[in-house]
Design a protein around this nucleic acid. Structure first.
Length: 271
DNA sequence: AGAGGTACCTGGCAGC
DNA sequence: TGCTGCCAGGTACCTC
C-alpha cells in the first residue's frame, strides 16, 4: 500500500515523537519479513539516542547515536505510536520501546517490509547506494529523464518506476503522472521528446506533492501514524477507474497490464 | 546491457 | 455459506 507520499506522511507523523528520545528496547515477535530482522538490531539499538527520522525513496531512516534503523513498509506495512497497554494484534510484528508508556508499533500483514540495521554511513548501504534521485529533490528534472531514457525501448511507465532511474515512484502515482502529462504508458521511454519529459517530470512532482498534502492515498487499509486514512484517493484521475469517463475528455478509461502491473490510461488524451 | 519474469506472504473479493 | 482462484500499493534477483 505505501508509496512515497504514504512513507513521507508516516515519516512526518512519527518524527516529533521519536527525535531526541532514547530507545529502551525492541520486541520482535516475527522476524521473518522480506529479509530476516538481524539479530544484532535488538542488541545494538538498545540505549541509542534517536537523532532524526528521514526518508530516502520508500525507506524510512531512523538515525541514532549507534547506527541507522532502515525500515521499509513493503506493500502492507504501517507504523503507529501506541500506548503499551494496547495488546499487539496478529500482524503487529515489532515494537520499539522508549522507556515510558509509548512505543512505535510496526504492523505488516503481508510481511513484504523490512527492518534492517546499518552501522556504516547509511547512504552507502547496498539498498540505497544505487537509487536514482528523489523525485521531489533538486537534481530531478526533465533533462535528467530525457538523458537517462535515450536508447531505451522500455515502456515509459516501467521506466519511471525503476528505482535506479527515479526513487520511490510506484504504480498509483506512475499512472496518475502519465495521465497528467498526456503520455501513453506503453510509449518507449527513448522516443519521448525533451519537452514532453519536462512535462512528465513536473507531473510526477506535482502529483506526489498533492498526495502528501492530502495525507497519502488510502486504498484498502492504509492508515497513517495517527491511525487515520489518507484522502488522496478521491483525487485519483485514472487509477482504479476502469471504464469511468476521463475527467478531461469523457472517453472511458482503459485498463491494461504493463510489466505485470495494472495500468490505467485515457486512450484519447494519452499518446 | 536491457527486458521480462519470479519470488516473497497474507487478506479480500469475485465467481461459482 | 463455502470453496477456489485471482489480485494487490514493492522491489531484488533471476534468466533470456
Amino acid at each position: 500500500m505505501p508509496e512515497l507520499p504514504e512513507v513521507e506522511t508516516t515519516c512526518r507523523g512519527i518524527e516529533p515523537h521519536l527525535a531526541g528520545t532514547r530507545v529502551h528496547h525492541v520486541t520482535v515477535r516475527q522476524k521473518q519479513l522480506r529479509w530476516p530482522v538481524p539479530g544484532a538490531l535488538a542488541r545494538e539499538i538498545a540505549g541509542a539516542q534517536i537523532r532524526q527520522v528521514t526518508r530516502r525513496a520508500k525507506y524510512l531512516l531512523i538515525g541514532t547515536s549507534q547506527g541507522t534503523l532502515i525500515i521499509h513498509l513493503g506493500m502492507s506495512g504501517s507504523l503507529r505510536i501506541v500506548d503499551d497497554s494496547e495488546a499487539p494484534g496478529k500482524h503487529d510484528h515489532i515494537d520499539l520501546h522508549f522507556g515510558d508508556s509509548r512505543l512505535l508499533r510496526y504492523t505488516d500483514p503481508r510481511r513484504f517490509g523490512a527492518w534492517l540495521w546499518c552501522t556504516q554511513p547509511v547512504e552507502q548501504h547496498p539498498l540505497l547506494a544505487a537509487l536514482g534521485p528523489e523525485p521531489l529533490g533538486d537534481s530531478f528534472h526533465g533533462d535528467y529523464l530525457f538523458h537517462q531514457s535515450r536508447g531505451r525501448k522500455l515502456a515509459i511507465k516501467s521506466f519511471i518506476m525503476d528505482s535506479h532511474i527515479l526513487a520511490g515512484v510506484g504504480n498509483i502515482y506512475a499512472n496518475e503522472a502519465l495521465f497528467r502529462a498526456g503520455i501513453h504508458p506503453l510509449r518507449a521511454a527513448g522516443r519521448i521528446s525533451r519537452a514532453r519529459h519536462a512535462v512528465l517530470a513536473d507531473a510526477i512532482r506535482d502529483v506526489l506533492e498533492a498526495a502528501i498534502h492530502q495525507g497519502g492515498t488510502t486504498l484498502r487499509d492504509f492508515l497513517n501514524s495517527e491511525g487515520k486514512p489518507g484522502y488522496f484517493r478521491q483525487s485519483l484521475e485514472v487509477y482504479g477507474r476502469t471504464s469511468d469517463p476521463c475527467p478531461r475528455c469523457g472517453t472511458p478509461i482503459r485498463e491494461i497490464r504493463s510489466g505485470q502491473r495494472s495500468t490505467f490510461y485515457c486512450p484519447r488524451c494519452q499518446r
